Amino acid sequence: DHWHVHIDGERIRLDGASEEFIRTLEELIRRGTDARELKEIIKEYLR
């Protein structure tokens, strides 16, 4: 599956992301997590 998110107007691909990770991201977004912080979390995950 190819997922991607838009954060700060930037399109970030989440290739190979699990549904669990996507749900976690959605939860963080709902909580109002800062965009820079979200991008860091995604970069760490994709390593």
Rank of each mutant, 00 (worst) to 15 (best):
H2K: 10
L28D: 01
A17L: 05
L28R: 04
D1H: 13
T24D: 07
L28I: 06
I41S: 02
H2A: 12
S18C: 02
G16C: 06
T33H: 07
I41E: 01
E27N: 10
D1M: 13
L28T: 03
E20A: 14
V5C: 04
D34H: 12
R11D: 15
R30I: 08
R30A: 12
R31K: 11
R13G: 15
E10S: 04
L25Y: 02
T33C: 06
L38E: 00
H4M: 07
E10D: 07
E26A: 11
L14N: 01
A17M: 08
D15A: 08
I42T: 01
E44T: 06
E40R: 15
L46F: 14
H4N: 05
W3V: 10
R11W: 15
Y45L: 03
I42N: 00
I41C: 04
A35H: 08
D15Q: 10
R13I: 14
W3Y: 13
R23H: 07
R47F: 11
A35Y: 07
R36M: 12
A35L: 09
I22F: 07
T33K: 04
E26N: 10
E19L: 15
S18M: 04
S18H: 10
E44C: 14
H6R: 07
L14S: 01
G9I: 04
Y45F: 09
A35P: 13
H6K: 09
F21P: 00
E10R: 04
W3G: 05
K43L: 13
E40L: 14
E20Q: 11
R11G: 09
R23P: 00
A17C: 02
E19M: 15
T33L: 10
I7C: 02
R30C: 06
E19P: 13
L28W: 07
L25W: 04
G16S: 07
L46V: 08
R31G: 08
D34K: 10
E44I: 08
E27M: 14
E37Y: 13
E20N: 09
R30P: 00
R47K: 13
L14Q: 00
R31H: 08
E19R: 13
L28E: 04
D1K: 12
I42V: 08
V5E: 02
K43F: 14
R11V: 15
G16Q: 07
E10P: 01
R36E: 11
E40Q: 13
E20T: 13
R30G: 07
I42S: 00
A17V: 13
W3N: 08
